[in-house]
Design a binder for these strands. Sequence first.
RNA 1: GUCCCCAUCGUCUAGCCAGGCCCAGGAUACCGGCCUUUCACGCCGGCGACGGGGGUUCAAAUCCCCCUGGGGACGCCA
Length: 477
Amino acid sequence: MKEVRTRFAPSPTGYLHIGGARTALFNWLFARHHGGKFVLRIEDTDRSRSREEFLADILDSLSWLGLHWDEGPYFQSQRMELYREHAERLLDEGKAYRCYCTPEELEEMRKRALAEGRKPKYDGRCRYRKDQPDLPYAIRFKAPLDGVTVVEDLLRGKVTFRNEELDDLIIVRSDGTPTYNFVVVVDDALMGITHVIRGDDHLNNTPRQILLYRALGYPVPKFAHLPLILGTDRTRLSKRHGATAVSAYREMGYLPEAMVNYLARLGWSYGDQEIFSLGELVEKFSLENVSKSPAVFDPEKLLWLNAHYIKEEPPEEIARRLLPFLKEEGIEVNLGEKLIKAVKTLQPRAKTLKEMASQAAFYFRPPTSYDQKGVEKFFTERASEFLERFKEAIKGVPFTEEALEATFRRLCDELEIKTKDAAQAVRLALTGRTVSPGLFEVMDVLGPEEVIKRIELAQTVCGRPAHAAEADRTPGV
RNA sequence: GUCCCCAUCGUCUAGCCAGGCCCAGGAUACCGGCCUUUCACGCCGGCGACGGGGGUUCAAAUCCCCCUGGGGACGCCA
């Protein structure tokens, strides 16, 4: 059997978005699953809208997701000669013709057709034209006027189009540049693409493309049209629905593993399984299990998967990826033992790396203020006494979670203070907040000197009800 | 408007092709409980769907038809 070759062909007119990423993923998975090749091609024939910045974003995002291409990127802008030759050939063979209609005229015809409730369609007025006026012209493909064209879709089966529904599409613009439906055929044919896997929005283009393959004498590849990804309002996912760029999720602290896993399950399934690694996806992916109906993008489920991978991956790895997010928080640390320990305490608590960075901040700088409600509730005189005794007590025990907890509990009994109240006072002293990872793991990360230092700092505000009204102020004043 | 595609919990989906094992399973979200030094995690439980109507059949979520609904396409964009 012939080697499977798939491609992803984005146009650099926008960031790589969720939908494009899923198309890329499915193509990549299909090729990998069948031991074939995945080709990257950049469709930059629209020179005015293409931008370098978008190209970089697409390449970076694909790499970030782990979707490495075996060939390319090819650039259509560098293949113009090829398209010109093909167009010329069709012209010579009488399979295409010059059209002198102006865009304005065509626009006019379209409007009228729509207004009269007809399908807007070129009437072919230049098709039989014999003269060749000295005017700018576009080149149109001469499509059959009757009969049908059948698309054999791997997902949907036979889809039949009546040729009379199709019109003579423009393959070369009056400025000499080729159009999408034409270049895509030339390129897919020349690049030996065996399976064209793309969005449902291309299904209507497919019969025209098949006609072009035939006219050009190239073999027709297999097609599979994926259902579109929709926003919550059930219209095609777009910027209006919030963040849609893959890079935006990366910046928000999502892991590529979570994104890939989510994208894979959006329109594809494998029984009841929810969690898949890339390798597992390669092994299990099949077009047969791709659903035919459009799917609504659900950020909540993506978030859940992200939280899952944050919990599951090795702390060292998470710590490494956390670094840039810490930097954004103004925290410059190296990938040391303290960071890794801190990450361990945060793994079950953070849903994104960004969130984790913010939660981790207190490990690296002492509180500059204390949660106001917490101060009122927990920085009582009793707590003040407890802090003093606890501070002294821990100096005499080994600094391990177990020993610290034992000491803590003993002291609670002795001073007849509820563990909850004591714990919250200590938590507030150490972190400045009423919410944090477990007390003793926090202490373990901070180390004895820092713990004592922070308790002493807290003692300057704890147990001074007169000042409670202005709580949340800078401690030590 | 015309053409094309689609139709199971709010959402992602299993089941459908090879009808009975499905008064429909999983996940997420939400609600409740347990665990507990806070918050999470985790565990347990709950809520929640076969769009409607006709057929075919002993039997239909599963097969057929119609309706409805949703989406997409109709560019000298890709």
